[in-house]
Design a protein around this nucleic acid. Structure first.
Lengths: 187, 187, 187, 187
DNA sequence: CATGAATGAGGGTTCATTCAT
DNA sequence: GATGAATGAACCCTCATTCAT
C-alpha cells in the first residue's frame, strides 16, 4: 500500500529507522497497527519495500542523467549537473530516503534493503567512469565510484539541512568536491 | 570513570549507539548497571562523556598536525598528510569513535554530544583555511571547512572497513578527494 | 457448511485447537474469513459443530457394534472387537477427532463441544455394562463406563501414532487393557 | 526463583500452558512481568524449569515406591499401591503438574520439558516389569510400560476432579485397571 | 558507594472478529 | 451471500532506570 510507504517515509525521516515505531507509522498512515501486517511481514519489510520504491522512483528521476550517450560528449561539469541535480532534488523531495540510505551503520534489516539502491547507483557511476576513463583498471574504477558516491551521500544531509541560498551554495560545493576528486582520479 | 567510558566505546563500536544496552556496557566494564548511574545520568550522558574524552584524546593526537606555523609553510599535500593520517589512525584505534560520530542521522542525545568534537575540528580546519586563503570571506571559509570535514567523515567507514593494501588505497583516495576539493576551493 | 467443517478438521488436526487460526481454516476451506462467521458465531462454535458431526458420523460407524442384541450374546472379547475396532478406524481416518477430544485439559469452549460426544459414548457403554452386569448399582456402572472410555481415549494417540505392526500391537494392548479392567469390574 | 515456579504452576493449572500469560504468572508471583525474564528466558523456559522441579520432587515422593528390592517380593496389589498412591497424591497436591504433563498434544516448547519426566517414569516402570516378567522381550516390555503409564495419566484428571469418597473410588478403579492390564500382560 | 533485582512502559506482532463494499 | 481489509486488544518480551539492601 502506497499510503503505508508514504507514512513510513515520513516517520523514518522524522525518527530514523530504529526509533520509528509501527504504531507511529500506522497512525501516520491513518490505519491501525494490525493493518500494517496485512501488507508487510514486519517493520523490516516496510523498509525494504520503501527502499524498492525509492529505487524505482530514483531510476525514473535519474533516467535522463544517465543517458549513456552523453557520458563522453559532455564536459565533466555538465555531466555532474545532470547526475547530481536530480538526486539532490529527490533527496529534498523525499526526506525518508536519507533516513534509510545515508547512514554509515546499517542495522541488519536495512543493509539488505539498501544494497539494491547502492548497487544500482554504483553500476551507473562505474559505467560513467568506464566511458570517460576506459584505461582505468576495474578495481580502481570501482573504488573511484564508491568514493564518489560516498562523498555525495555525505553531502546530502548538509544540502538538505540548508535552505535557500545556503542550499544552493552547498550544492555548488558538492559539485566542486566531486569535480575535484573525479577530475584528478579519472585523468 | 575511565573504565566505563572504555567499556561504552567497545559496546558502541560493537552494537551502535541505539542497540547498545546499559547492561552490556556495565558488564563490559565489570560493574553493575546501577553503578553506571552513579557517574552518568543516563545513556546519553555516557555518550556525551565519551565524546568529550574523544575530543581531548584527538586534540593530543592531532596536536602536531595543527602546529599553525606549518599551515602556510607546507604544500597542501604535506599538510593533508599531517591532518589526515593521525585522525585515520585514531579512528582505526578507536572503533567506538566512528560509531558515535560518523553518522548522518544523529539521535537527539548524540547530536549534542557530537557538537564539541565537530566544533573543535571545525575550528582547526577553519584556522588552516584562513591561513592559506586569508582573503576568503568567513562564510565561505566555514562552509569549506564543513564540507572538508564531511568528506573526511564519510570516508572513515570506507577506510576502516578496508584492510591492508586496500585500506592504504582508500586513504590515498581520501587525500585525493580532499586535495581536489580544497585546491579548488581555496585557490 | 460441510466444507468448513472438513477444513477445520484438517486444521485442528494439523495445529491443535488453540493454535488453529480462523484464517487458516478459511483458507483450507477455500473461502474468506468473513464467510466463516456467516455460518458459525466464533471459533468455538466451529469446534462445537465439528464435534456434533463427529458424533453423528461416529454413531453411524459404530451402529452395528452397538446392536444391543449382542450385548449379552457375545463373549467380552468379541464385544470389545466390535466396539473398539470401528472407533480406532474412525480415529485413524479422522485425525481432527483426536485433536478435539483426546485431551485431558479442555479449554472452556471445547469442554462444551466435547460433552455430547462423551455423553453419547457414555450412554452406549453404560447400556452395554447394564446388559452384562444388571446387578451393578447405577453409580458404579457410570463410573466403570467413564473409566473404560478414559482408558480408550488415552490409548488413541498411542495407536494413531504407531504404524503397521506396532499399531496392531497397540490395538491388542488396548483391548487387553479394556478386557482386564472390564472383566474385573463387571464380574 | 521458587516463587515464580509456584506461581506458574498455579497459572498453568488454572489456564493451561498456552492460555497462561506471563502477566498472569507475574501477578500471581507478586512481581512485574519484566522480572520473570531475569530468571527465565521465556515462557517456555519457565515450563521447562517447572518440569525439572516436578521431576525432582516426584523422584523424592516416589523414591520408596521404587525400592527395587520390593519389585518381586510384593504381590501386584501391594506394588500398585506403592506406585500409584504417591503419584496420585502428588498430582492432587500439584495441580500444575497435570497441566504440563497429562496432555496428548504437546506444544513444541513443552515436549522437550515433558520428555525427562516421561523418560524417568518409563524407566522405573520398565524396571519393575523386567523384575516381574524377566522373560518378556524388551519391545513388549517397553510397550507394556508405555500403556500402563498412559492409562495412569488418563485417569489422573478423573481422580483429581473427583472429591471425597468419589475420588477414593476413582483411585480404586485406577488400580483395578492397572491390575487388570498388568496381570494379563505380565503373566 | 556498589549492587543487581525489580520495575513498567512500550516495542513488535498476532489473530478472532467485524463491516463496508 | 461473500469478501477481505481493517480493527484493536492482548500477547510476549526488552531495557533504561531505580532503590532497598
Amino acid at each position: 500500500m502506497a499510503q503505508i510507504l508514504d507514512a513510513s517515509a515520513v516517520v523514518f525521516a522524522r525518527s530514523g529507522f530504529e526509533k520509528a515505531t509501527t504504531i507511529a507509522i500506522a497512525a501516520e498512515a491513518g490505519i491501525s497497527p494490525g493493518s500494517l501486517y496485512q501488507f508487510f511481514a514486519n517493520k523490516e519489510a516496510i523498509a525494504q519495500a520503501l527502499a524498492d520504491r525509492f529505487v524505482a522512483q530514483l531510476r525514473l528521476a535519474h533516467q535522463e542523467a544517465f543517458d549513456e550517450a552523453r557520458f563522453t560528449s559532455l564536459p565533466l561539469d555538465g555531466l555532474l549537473d545532470r547526475m547530481v541535480d536530480p538526486i539532490v532534488a529527490f533527496n529534498i523531495a523525499n526526506p525518508g530516503f536519507k533516513a534509510l540510505f545515508a547512514r554509515t551503520d546499517m542495522p541488519a534489516g536495512l543493509a539488505d534493503a539498501a544494497r539494491p539502491v547502492q548497487a544500482a547507483l554504483l553500476a551507473r557511476v562505474e559505467a560513467m567512469i568506464a566511458a570517460r576513463a576506459p584505461e582505468l583498471p576495474a578495481g580502481d574504477r570501482t573504488r573511484t565510484a564508491l568514493v564518489g558516491i560516498q562523498i555525495f551521500q555525505a553531502m546530502v544531509p548538509l544540502v538538505v539541512a540548508a535552505e535557500g541560498e545556503e542550499r544552493a551554495a552547498m550544492v555548488r560545493e558538492l559539485k566542486r568536491a566531486l569535480h575535484g576528486y573525479l577530475a584528478d582520479a579519472i585523468a
